[in-house]
Amino acid sequence: TIDEIIKALEQAVKDNKPIQVGNYTVTSADEAEKLAKKLKKEY
């Protein structure tokens, strides 16, 4: 679900690790936030 994706992003940001979500690779908190907002609009 979208919530699980967002939790995974938040965890990756805390661990400061890049995370791959679908076609996106998120490497920073800023990118994670942008991706989360984008995904919320889509779903």
Rank of each mutant, 00 (worst) to 15 (best):
T1C: 15
T1H: 09
I2S: 02
I2R: 04
I2C: 13
I2Q: 03
I2M: 10
I2E: 02
I2L: 11
D3T: 05
D3A: 14
D3S: 09
D3I: 11
D3P: 11
E4A: 09
E4I: 04
E4H: 07
E4M: 11
I5G: 00
I5W: 11
I5F: 04
I5T: 01
I6S: 01
I6K: 01
K7I: 09
K7W: 13
K7L: 12
K7E: 09
K7M: 11
K7V: 07
A8Q: 10
L9A: 03
L9C: 04
E10S: 05
E10Q: 10
Q11D: 08
Q11V: 05
A12W: 14
A12R: 01
A12S: 06
A12G: 06
A12I: 09
V13R: 05
V13H: 05
V13D: 02
V13L: 08
V13P: 02
K14N: 07
K14V: 11
K14S: 05
K14R: 13
D15Q: 07
D15F: 12
D15K: 03
D15L: 11
N16W: 14
N16G: 15
K17E: 04
K17M: 14
K17T: 12
K17N: 09
K17A: 06
K17H: 08
P18A: 08
P18M: 05
P18Y: 04
P18I: 08
P18D: 00
I19G: 02
I19M: 08
I19H: 02
I19C: 10
Q20H: 13
Q20P: 03
Q20M: 09
Q20W: 05
V21M: 06
V21N: 02
V21A: 02
V21F: 08
V21W: 07
V21L: 12
G22A: 05
G22S: 02
G22E: 06
G22I: 03
N23M: 12
N23E: 15
N23C: 09
N23W: 08
N23I: 12
Y24Q: 06
Y24E: 06
Y24C: 14
Y24H: 09
Y24M: 10
T25Y: 15
T25W: 15
V26D: 02
V26M: 03
V26E: 03
V26W: 03
T27I: 10
T27V: 13
T27Y: 13
T27K: 11
T27L: 15
S28A: 00
S28P: 02
S28Y: 04
S28T: 14
A29N: 04
A29Y: 04
A29K: 07
A29Q: 08
D30M: 11
D30A: 15
D30G: 09
E31P: 00
E31F: 04
E31Y: 02
E31M: 11
E31W: 01
E31D: 08
A32C: 03
A32N: 00
E33Q: 12
E33D: 12
E33M: 11
K34C: 15
K34I: 10
K34R: 11
L35E: 01
L35P: 00
L35W: 03
A36M: 15
A36P: 02
K37Q: 15
K37V: 11
K37A: 14
K38I: 08
K38C: 15
K38P: 03
K38N: 05
K38W: 14
L39V: 03
L39R: 00
L39P: 03
K40H: 10
K40E: 08
K40W: 11
K40V: 06
E42V: 06
E42C: 15
E42F: 11
E42L: 13
Y43M: 13
Y43A: 12
Y43L: 13
Y43N: 14
Y43R: 07
Y43H: 13
